[in-house]
Write a protein that binds this DNA or RNA. Structure first.
Lengths: 335, 335
DNA sequence: GTGAAAGCGCTAACAC
DNA sequence: GTGTTAGCGCTTTCAC
């Protein structure tokens, strides 16, 4: 293992050592043509001897390519990133980036400061591409979608369809979940929605409505949550007081389902005996609730992977199609 | 909101527009002294008019400062990053970086490829500093600790004490947990350890031993796990067959505790009636197991925050002291 | 196949 | 205070 605390070795030094011009050395490094075999080898030897590593900054300046992409997560709440969801996305993204020379920059834009930074980033090509996950607000998203830097979205904003995105089939998943409730013979099926200013929130609500419409059932038992456990509790309490006859609930996130479950139990309703519930996301905790939660799984790592792939494709001048990843029902004891 | 799809505006253009020299403009941008008020204002106006944003790459090349730090997580298993733990660390790190001009780069070094990249990074000053979390192996860590780039460690390697680190008090937490079991009147207290090639694994084991030594109890009932749920199940089964008399288990991670809990239940041992257990990490699921898990909480976001702060301090030439963050016992029904 | 030379956009001496 | 100048380390025409 070579000594790490050595100062930067420049291309000039390599060239000198190899007895060639700097341009020749450069050609070898970037394995470009027009170099004699002899020189090529001489340079390669010099590179090894000196432990040369190209200076990425200088290269970036010369080529006008940053050699980095950014994963930007814009939200009004710094804590959302603590959601394991993003960790999984990152793993997926990383798995494809690892095959390339691209660095990954992470931009958690919560404050206005972060937002500004994101805008500047978009404008100044400090990154060769951006993967954007926005949990709220469409204006930044529209802005990003218009930037001349390649941008792919993870998930879709509410009122706006980006040119390039990969999303989970939230609507389909919600339909699946609700249909499952119907299949189980439930007829008074309520829902607790997520935040309706997020794409996932509205899509899951639509899926619920569709499934009930098809089944010819009433889709009027709805309470709005915010994806959080507490929000789920509140919404469940509301539902219970306004629609005490409900016999099932489709809940737009497992976190909310956990909150709702507690309220149901406290109210003396057995699950799934009196009320069947299904959640969404398939978080680890969903396996450990009592009873374990039926839920909808989405392929999160795949989402990250496909975002990165789509970005690559975009960066190499292609025009990829948007992608919707399938979700699937995980059946457990709560239904 | 300004149009984003505009090409790069250079400092020269700003200078020309303001009718000053480039150096004057540069001074204003970096609010350095020696500029008359008039010119300063002229430049500021030009900046706004033109929508000038400095080119970070060029600046980095000129100043020899990357303007970015990296969070490197080196592990032999790509999946470890999916652990919510890291998401929390990132939130902490980001909260302090957000106050600065520094970008955050994420380096998940799993493959050899990633390792190489990390080494190069260390060597070429592509980043002004690195925060390093290594889950295994000490050689890379020692290498990093010797690099001339500021490096702070999150957690400590097993056989090696870095110069700058912030760590949770794993040993103290384990002692706390074990003492709690002692206080509950348990006398045949076993342990399931984590991976013993990770600092957290060995430290928690030491804490267990210490507590039992102080209490004058036998610390011989031990099985080794790997922090995973399955590993916990296996280890618990082993413990049950080799030390069927045990009446408590300190388990070095909640994930393992969940696995162990299932095995205990399946074996007909009631928790905490027959066997009391306590876990470590305070993951969300720990609240939803049956019974809910007593566990040790560590301040993960604070860990991230302090790593970033320590790095900043290091980068500004100071010599910070290592930091150990307190852990605390969260008492629930499993004891 | 080869090298000289001109940048990439910025900062930092230095002389005025 | 101010502007001129020389780089930072690399890539890339362009003529040979």
């Amino acid at each position: 293992m070579t000594d790490i605390s050595r100062r930067q070795v420049t291309l000039d030094e390599v060239a000198e050592r190899a007895g060639v011009s700097r341009s020749a050395a450069s050609r070898v490094i970037n394995n470009a043509p027009h170099v004699s075999k002899a020189k090529r080898e001489a340079v390669q030897r010099a590179v090894v001897d000196l432990g040369y590593v190209p200076n990425a900054t200088a290269r970036a300046l010369a080529t006008q390519q940053a050699g980095a992409v950014v994963l930007a997560i814009s939200s009004d709440n710094p804590q959302v990133f603590a959601d394991p969801f993003f960790a999984e996305v990152v793993v997926g993204v990383n798995s494809v980036l690892e095959e390339t020379e691209l660095e990954l920059m992470l931009l958690l834009a919560t404050s206005t400061r972060g937002q500004t930074r994101l805008e500047q980033l978009l404008r100044t090509r400090q990154a060769d591409g951006v993967m954007m996950m926005s949990t709220h607000g469409d204006t930044l998203a529209e802005l990003a979608d218009k930037a001349d830097v390649p941008v792919v979205f993870g998930g879709r904003p509410v009122n706006f369809e980006p040119r390039f995105y990969v999303d989970a089939d939230n609507r389909g998943g919600a339909r699946l979940a609700t249909e499952h409730l119907v299949d189980k013979g439930r007829t008074r099926i309520a829902t607790i929605t997520g935040r309706m200013d997020e794409g996932a929130g509205t899509a899951r609500f639509k899926g619920y409505q569709e499934a009930l419409a098809v089944a010819g059932l009433d889709a009027g038992r709805v309470a709005h949550g915010d994806f959080s456990e507490d929000g789920g509790s509140r919404a469940m309490a509301e539902l219970l007081s306004e629609h005490p006859d409900l016999d099932a609930v489709f809940i737009a996130s497992d976190q909310m389902a956990i909150g709702a479950l507690r309220v149901l139990t406290d109210a003396g309703r057995s699950v799934p005996g009196d009320v069947a519930i299904v959640g969404f996301n398939d978080i680890p905790s969903a396996r450990h609730t009592a009873p374990p939660l039926t839920t909808v799984n989405q392929p999160i790592q795949a989402l990250g992977r496909e975002m990165a792939r789509m970005l690559q494709s975009l960066m190499s001048g292609e025009t990829p199609s948007p992608l919707i990843l399938p979700t699937r029902l995980i059946q457990r004891a709560s239904t």
